[in-house]
């Protein structure tokens, strides 16, 4: 059985795993506050331009956003199942599930990219680059500025999450995790769940009127 290294500040592996997981939760809390600043900004501008925002949301392509929602939710399930498989002692299944998660994550980025292309063609760009004649209001400009910042930041997180998942797959391949000790795997997938949860909030804000 592979055993992870015990840091000399810990008295046993259990304490080390616990500390790692707790640290991850604190980090995720910090990440949520990063997005919360954007949510607050969104709320303020939406209350300032309610009609413009509703119009912009109606013009946004619901199908892309919803397809991405399904992709991310399913990928999150796969990531959770990957941990479950490791607990059951089936590392090959874990690897397969992680690969599925990664493929779905890539799919998310592809769809997001396609949607970005549509927006670029329409001219629904942020700030002073905005030139979509169909929706010439300040509110729509605000909406799309926020849309780009929020989804852009989220896409960065998706990319980071994919890197983490790729690294986890490598570790699984090397047999670094065991039935008892797979704190790293749990933490990495936790991060993927955060990426998913953020999208669950972004989806209604940006696509549902």
């Amino acid at each position: 059985m592979p055993k992870p290294l015990l840091g000399e500040q810990y008295s046993d592996l259990e304490q080390q795993d616990g500390a790692l997981q707790f640290g991850m939760w604190v980090f995720l809390g910090s990440e949520l506050l990063l997005f919360s600043a954007l949510f607050a900004l969104y709320a303020s501008y939406r209350s300032m331009y309610p009609a413009d925002f509703e119009q912009a949301i109606r013009h946004n392509t619901l199908v892309y956003g919803t397809a991405n929602l399904y992709l991310l939710l399913t990928s999150s399930l796969c990531a959770a199942l990957a941990v479950w498989a490791m607990r059951r002692g089936r590392p090959r299944l874990t690897l397969g599930l992680l690969a599925t998660t990664i493929v779905m994550g890539l799919g998310f980025l592809v769809i997001k990219g396609a949607e970005y292309l549509v927006h670029i063609r329409e001219g629904a760009l942020p700030g002073r680059y905005y030139h979509w004649h169909e929706l010439p209001s300040f509110g729509a400009n605000r909406f799309y500025s926020l849309y780009w910042v929020m989804t852009g930041l989220h896409a960065l997180h998706v990319t980071a999450g994919l890197c983490v998942l790729g690294w986890l797959s490598l570790r699984v391949m090397k047999g670094a995790y065991s039935v008892e000790h797979h704190a790293g795997l749990e933490m990495g997938t936790l991060y993927w769940h955060l990426v998913d949860i953020v999208w669950i909030f972004l989806w209604p804000l940006l696509y549902l009127s």
Binding site: G127, R128, Y130, H131, W132, H133, P136, S137, F138, N141
Partner: peptide
């Protein structure tokens, strides 16, 4: 004029 040209 705003960035979107004159609005109607």
């Amino acid at each position: 004029v705003g960035p979107n040209g004159p609005e109607v």
